[in-house]
């Protein structure tokens, strides 16, 4: 079966049909996602909200090809993820998705510039071009002067801005952010909201969040509970 979804000019960026994700631990079965149907058009910010353990992160991981669903069909940017092998999924993550994590997940022994350049390195971009683009992206978030600093020398907000910049390195159409302000104070969080909002003008940003102010900025809010969409 082809990994390309049938041609349609109105095809959404993300399409989930009856997605289930079941985790098994010993004899216990946890239904993290339970028959999710979802259609997300591009561009804009989509907030996914729900209580802890409701399946928000699982949904994000499935959309970002970090995990395979147990059942159902998922198409992102016209690619049927179930039909992709591991190498193709790696390439998909590299080119189509940018991830932003709650704990920033910067590589501690690389500078901000090197962290931002890393996805481009995986994509085979030459060193000079990587450096130029990484610097331009850092400049866009006001961190060009901190380009040679390592994560340990940056504040939490600065680290998250570097992480967001890194997510944009390969210019993906989809950015997935998992609790991006969860580890930040409200003032710093506000800066991150604005940054994500700005980013969402040109691409789709799906944000998992507990933060009501961030959810209010989204053009669409998806509620999830016990692995199911509730609105």
């Amino acid at each position: 079966m082809s990994d390309r979804a049938p041609g349609n000019s109105q095809a959404p960026l993300v399409l989930l049909e009856q997605i289930t994700k079941i985790y098994r631990k010993d004899t216990q079965e946890v239904r993290a996602l339970d028959g999710i149907d979802l259609r997300i058009e591009s561009p804009g910010m989509v907030a996914v909200v729900g209580p802890s353990g409701s399946g928000k992160s699982s949904l994000l991981h499935v959309i970002g090809a970090m995990d395979r669903p147990t059942g159902g069909e998922i198409v992102v940017a016209g690619r049927r993820l179930a039909a992709l092998g591991n190498a193709e999924l790696t390439a998909f993550r590299r080119n189509t998705v940018g991830f932003v994590f709650q704990t920033f997940n910067l590589i501690p022994n690389l500078t901000a510039l090197e962290n931002v350049a890393l996805p481009m390195e995986f994509n085979g971009v030459d060193k000079r071009e990587r450096r130029r683009r990484a610097l331009a992206l850092l400049d866009r978030v006001g961190l060009a002067p901190r380009a040679t600093h390592r994560p340990g020398e940056l504040s939490g907000g600065e680290q998250q801005r570097v992480a967001i910049t890194r997510a944009l390195a390969n210019d993906p159409p989809l950015v997935l952010a998992d609790e991006p302000t969860g580890n930040l104070d409200s003032t710093t969080g506000q800066l991150i909201y604005e940054l994500l909002e700005e980013i969402a003008r040109g691409r789709t940003v799906i944000v998992v969040t507990h933060a009501e102010p961030l959810a209010q900025r989204a053009k669409r809010v998806i509620h999830i509970q016990d692995g199911r969409l509730v609105s």
């Binding site: 790696t90 993550r93 590299r94 080119n95 997940n105 590589i107 996805p119 390969n170």
Partner: peptide
Amino acid sequence: TREIGTLMALGASGAG
């Protein structure tokens, strides 16, 4: 391990 996950999320292969 977490860092390995980050690298994979950024597009690095397991072999890489």
